[in-house]
């Protein structure tokens, strides 16, 4: 514990700027992954333990498109769309069969796919780690804002992650599709009785969650080592986010992700050996004070 270093940091604007942007970037990428996870749980009632693998797939799809084209835009598109398409197949053939099953059954199916997808990645892309490299547009010196260091690529990531989040919120809150999804989450049988094909709605929701995870993987790919199993650490943090924010709450996922990002970045200065411990402590406190999470409602 180094409280003097933390005190010194928060008293300097440059340190606050650097650490805050650092926390925001970690938080926003985490939000993209966890909002898909929380959406799938909120609507489908499935705890998707394979969500980290979707993040991994997004990164590898992006890598595959980026290497020959050197277009980061196409890479993001490939990561998001490719993972979304995989999500539809995954939901239709496997996940749809465990709707309503207990968590253990869902865990078994999802964990099987974690192992399968890791092996598929090894077979297709190799066992070694890969590095996508920084898109040329972002190979520029960092910006200095109030003395703090801010990489332009990270500003871009924060912005585009926020856009993805906003688009998802608008889709769910302001469109007919969103209304149908929310209605299906409340009472799927009633929605089906009204003539809406709920299996398609569920597949679309799962695909949407997959798109968000794939987009996160694609966006993070330039600054991550791409390797089989890379989704695991993201998965754990995503679950912490969904627990803190409230299972099923997208706004909760946003707030919890940013809080976790800030805990990590400032914790690295004040509690260098206890940053993970801080996250779990925070989660425990939230669970004690508000068991449904900060923005969660009573679980179905």
């Amino acid at each position: 514990m180094d409280l003097s270093a933390l005190g010194s940091c928060v008293s300097q604007v440059s340190c606050v700027v650097t650490q805050t942007t650092s926390g925001l970037i970690s938080g926003m990428l985490l939000f993209l992954v966890s909002c898909g996870l929380t959406l799938i749980f909120g609507v489908l009632g499935v705890v998707n333990f394979a969500h980290g693998s979707l993040y991994m797939l997004g990164a590898f799809f992006a890598y595959t498109v980026y290497v020959p084209t050197h277009s980061f835009a196409l890479a993001i598109l490939a990561g998001a769309v490719g993972t979304g398409l995989f999500g539809i197949v995954f939901e239709r053939f496997f996940i749809s069969r465990v709707y309503g099953s207990d968590v253990l059954m869902q865990l078994l199916v999802c964990y099987a796919f974690v192992l399968i997808l890791d092996d598929v990645v090894k077979m297709v892309w190799g066992a070694s780690y890969l590095s996508m490299g920084m898109p040329e547009a972002f190979m520029v010196p960092p910006l200095f804002i109030a003395g703090g260091v801010v990489p332009p690529f990270y500003l871009f990531l924060i912005g585009i992650s926020a856009l993805f989040g906003l688009a998802l919120w608008l889709l769910m809150a302001r469109t007919r599709f969103g209304k149908v999804v929310r209605a299906a989450a409340q009472n799927g049988d009633m929605v089906a009785a009204l003539g809406i094909r709920t299996p398609y709605v569920f597949a679309a929701v799962f695909a949407l969650g997959s798109v968000m995870a794939g987009a996160a993987g694609a966006l993070a790919a330039p600054v991550r080592s791409l390797t089989a199993g890379m989704g695991f650490s993201v998965l754990i943090e995503s679950f912490i986010v969904t627990v803190i924010g409230g299972m099923g709450s997208i706004v909760g996922a946003l707030v919890a992700s940013i809080l976790l990002g800030l805990i990590q970045s400032f914790g690295a200065i004040g509690f260098p050996l206890f940053t993970d411990g801080l996250m779990f402590t925070f989660m425990a406190v939230v669970l004690i004070v508000k068991p449904t999470g900060l923005f969660g409602q009573r679980v179905r």
């Binding site: 270093a5 940091c9 340190c15 650097t18 650490q19 650092s22 926390g23 970037i25 970690s26 990428l29 260091v149 990270y154 993070a220 991550r224 080592s225 890379m230 650490s233 993201v234 990590q264 970045s265 914790g267 690295a268 200065i269 260098p272 050996l273 940053t275 993970d276």
Partner: peptide, 21 residues
């Protein structure tokens, strides 16, 4: 000072900014 990221940690941003500080 010493920074000790976890093995296989994906995000080194908090460690890097700590080094900068």
């Amino acid at each position: 000072e010493g920074a000790w990221p976890k093995l296989f940690q994906p995000d080194y941003t908090p460690v890097i900014t700590k080094i900068l500080q």
